[in-house]
Amino acid sequence: MSTATGRSETPAIAWSEDADVPEGRYLLDRAGLLGPLMLLPAIIYIIGLVGIPLVLAVLYSFSNATVGDQSINWVGLENFRTVVQNATFRMALKNTILFAFVSQIIVIILANILALVLSAEFRGKRLVRFLVMLPWTTPIALAVLGWFWMLDNVASPIDALMRMLHIIGPDTIFDPKARAPILDIPFGDRNVRWLSKPDLARLAVLTVHVWRTLPLATVILLAGMTAIPQDVKDAAEIDGASYWRQLIYVRLPLLAPIMAVAVLYGIVFTFTDFTVVYVLTRGGPVDSTQVLATWAYFKGIQGSSLAQGAAIALFLLPILVAAAIVMLRLARRSETA
């Protein structure tokens, strides 16, 4: 930088005179040198914090390494075989996919609605925008602790509200012995005990994921909506299209690439998430909310079987690689368009 400013201050006429420029003075102006130099920190970072751990994980997954003995002895596919045969692993795999995809289907629908609402003019819009963004700015662990308390077996404010509205508790519309039709929950209980029942606990994890990733998707879609040229919207209006026709045939298709970006981000975030399940349920009750990230941790670190933990974590790879490829494609398409 200093050479660049130094040169621009020199009057242009002086150029012909200083023939004896010291060699190397404009070294940093060479793209061939400056480029790699600027990239270096990023490359070191990626190799150190992503590359090496990834290679280690792959190596461990084919070895019998433990937390106590990290030497790598080749055992082939042994770890994968053991891991797959475990019922908890299969539950974790199912949950990981369920949480990521179902939450993002819900998020993309809600984010579209929210973004449409927030792109309209109304009083208090800035406040609403701020509130919508709030979950994204809260640290994950803190936010999940908040949910943990909201869903607490005894102190849950949600239960208190439901009791106030006479939805749960004795002498309510539900007979104490009655059970809710789908979830098979005894509603007559004093409390719902959200995190103590497998289906409700899964619903809780899903809800937190939706709550957490909705703001980013909304903001991405909002930016996408404002990027649709006013002229195109006006043209659709003039061409006689009703609101719904404009939305379905013009706005949403133009928004589709942006929606794909929002969904991909959401999938990557939820697919790899560790904190929500770890803080909210620890994978419980009885491993019913385990996901790959938590199961890999419980198995590999707490259970000290580093090799099996690595094997479990590697199951995240295919989906993440696919997501990365789609993202890069989208990025390249928007560059050439």
């Binding site: 002229d231 195109v232 006006d234 043209a235 659709a236 003039i238 006689g240 026709r245 013009v250 589709a256």
Partner: peptide, 27 residues
């Protein structure tokens, strides 16, 4: 009425045929 805009305001995701047919589809 019909309007032609400075930017032409064509629907970028539709073919020329679908662009021209859009007002008719709306009808």
């Amino acid at each position: 009425i019909a309007m032609v805009f400075q930017s032409y305001a064509l629907y970028p995701h539709m073919s020329v045929y679908d662009n021209i047919a859009f007002p008719l589809k709306a009808q």
